Simulated assay, not measured.
Amino acid sequence: MRKRGFVLISLVAIGLAALGLRSCNNEFARRNLIEAGEVTAVVDAAKPGTVVVHMLRSGEEQTWTVDDNGDPGMGPAEEAPGGPRTQSCAGDACYRVAGDRLRVDESKDGGGTFTTAWQVGGADYDTLVRTYPDLGAPAEHLASRSVVAHPAGGGQVVYVANGRDGLLRRGPDGRWTRLGGPDSGEGCCFFAPVPRLASQPPPFEPAPYVIVAVALTILVTGAVTAARRRRWETFPAVVALAALAAYIGYLGAQQPDVGMYPGFVYGVPCVLLCLVGGGFLAARYTRRPVKDPEEPASVPS
């Protein structure tokens, strides 16, 4: 009787832990997108090869410096005259922003004719609108607002203020990169990552492998123990344990970043706990129950 109670209580506790972890993951992911802030403008700095990034984070205005290599730094910096601009040139190469959408146009003839150099539109843009919480008007808060272009490395370095989508950078090689919003932590300065676009190839996803590893570990451990002790009547509880632990492992593999620390710092211990703890519980479920001392002894006939 006590054995059944232990199994039931442990399964309920694991199920509640799974619900709690899922809720925490969703809340951290949402909070990360809110706390990343909004890049409201990018302007030329007085120091050559540097731009000043204006941000709005948690209702407070912040300024950052970012050099042409893409390295952010904290603190205010002197700005070049002129303020934010919707068009900036580096020699004959000019770049302009739309102001109401995520798009940058490029001209190679000093601003005579323009073609689209970079944009996020269609399904990608609609997905970003749904992803960013408390966005407001997309044409205002998810749009390319200002641009700065510098000659560098035989080409141009371009920075664009993209609102909630953070800072956009074009390197001298012509590659455009969504950097995100500058942020700080114990390691000083980094960029808060931006959501992946729907059209981009998905990164390596460890979650399916974690599910299989956790489930197999628990099922095999439970099956071997049940076969040795002839306790197959407890195997349905092992199956339930495998399903719950695999789900927790899946959530651990998808743990979002927490502050400046990447999600795997918290996710890996969670997965290891599912593997080790799940195997231990599977063996515990299928071992022979301890006889209750208060249970009357059977009288041989």
Rank of each mutant, 00 (worst) to 15 (best):
A36L: 00
R57M: 00
A46C: 01
P81G: 00
V51Q: 02
E61T: 07
A90S: 14
G75W: 07
R31H: 13
D100A: 06
G75R: 04
D71W: 14
E106K: 07
F28I: 14
A117Q: 05
A17G: 12
L19F: 02
A41C: 07
A17D: 09
M55V: 04
E27A: 13
L102W: 03
A17H: 09
L56S: 01
N26A: 13
V97C: 10
R101W: 10
S88C: 11
P76F: 10
A17L: 15
E27P: 11
E78Y: 06
N69K: 12
C89I: 10
L33T: 12
A90Y: 05
E79L: 13
V66M: 00
C24S: 15
D71N: 13
K47T: 08
L102Y: 07
H54V: 00
D67W: 04
D92K: 14
V43E: 08
D92R: 14
V104F: 00
G82F: 15
N26F: 08
C89D: 11
A90P: 07
V66A: 01
A41Y: 03
S88F: 05
P81K: 02
R96W: 09
T63C: 02
A29Q: 11
A77K: 12
L16T: 12
E38W: 02
D109T: 14
T40L: 00
S107P: 15
L19R: 07
A36M: 01
P72Y: 08
V97R: 05
A46R: 15
C94L: 12
D109A: 10
C94M: 07
V66L: 02
L102C: 09
E35S: 15
G59C: 02
T40M: 10
A77G: 11
N26S: 11
A93L: 10
S23Q: 01
R57E: 01
L16D: 06
R22F: 01
R101E: 09
E35C: 09
E27C: 11
A45Q: 08
G15S: 10
G83R: 09
E27I: 13
P84Q: 12
N32Q: 06
T63I: 03
R103Q: 14
G15L: 11
D92G: 09
P81W: 05
A45V: 13
V51P: 04
P48C: 14
F114Q: 05
A98L: 06
K108P: 03
G111Q: 04
Q62A: 05
G83Y: 06
E79V: 15
C24H: 15
C24Q: 09
N69F: 10
T115W: 09
E78F: 04
D105M: 13
G15K: 05
G37V: 07
T113A: 03
L33G: 07
C94K: 07
